[in-house]
């Protein structure tokens, strides 16, 4: 993992724990929905350039096409939270939740609608928990579902920053062989405000 001089050990520890709490909340919610155990890996948190983030995610996600739900947030700090699945994991999850075969193309609207809402719930769990701990309210835009490559995924976030906080939290639904990642990207300027908030927390 790339280490950035922008994060002190205390900030890294605090951010990692915040993400851990947020993802734990989201995993609890997902567990209730799928009624299967959610295996969580310890989140990794780094401050990186977009290029570094792209390289790391490319190797980590190891999939050409990804299903992604983007939730933009703004307020005292702003950016975008993304829930990412390999497309086959996304389809399995929709099938599990709706009972419909999401691989059938006619069911695209079902797949998009279901994944958008799942992303909305899980990403709100992450961001909302962090917001509650930091006592910093954030507003959300409507969640957006896209299928894209890692390069496209980060390029579409390039209006936000050349530097990102990459918080990678991987979860796995054991029985369904579904894996997913949560990524947080903070807007320039807002990144520093966020780090200052961590210091105060």
């Amino acid at each position: 993992m790339t280490h950035s001089p922008q994060l002190t050990p205390a900030q890294r520890d605090a951010l990692q724990e915040l993400v851990n709490i947020g993802v734990g909340q989201a995993a609890g919610t997902l567990n209730e929905m799928v009624r299967s155990h959610i295996h969580l890996q310890v989140p990794e948190v780094s401050v990186l350039s977009l290029h570094e983030a792209q390289t790391i995610l490319q190797s980590r996600l190891n999939s050409d096409l990804l299903s992604s739900v983007r939730l933009q947030f703004h307020g005292n700090f702003a950016g975008v939270a993304q829930l990412i699945f390999p497309t086959d994991s996304a389809a399995k999850l929709v099938t599990m939740l709706t009972g419909e075969d999401a691989k059938i193309s006619e069911l695209d609207s079902l797949k998009i609608g279901t994944l958008s809402e799942i992303g909305n719930i899980l990403l709100n769990g992450v961001m909302g928990t962090m917001s509650n701990v930091l006592e910093q309210h954030v507003e959300y835009s409507m969640p957006v579902y896209v299928e894209q490559t890692v390069t496209q995924l980060l390029n579409s976030s390039s209006d936000y920053a050349s530097t990102v906080i990459l918080a990678q939290a991987r979860f796995r639904i054991e029985q369904l062989h579904i894996t997913g990642d949560i990524i947080l990207i903070f807007k320039v300027g807002s990144l520093n405000r966020f780090l200052a908030t961590l210091k105060d927390a």
Binding site: Q25, E32, E117, T129, S131, N132
Partner: peptide
Amino acid sequence: VTADVQETTRQQCLALGAIAVLNKPPK
């Protein structure tokens, strides 16, 4: 019934007259 788990959101809804706020997915 909202995905937003922020305490400030809950308080805002109650101030606007909601009787209760539940997080998704509700039990």
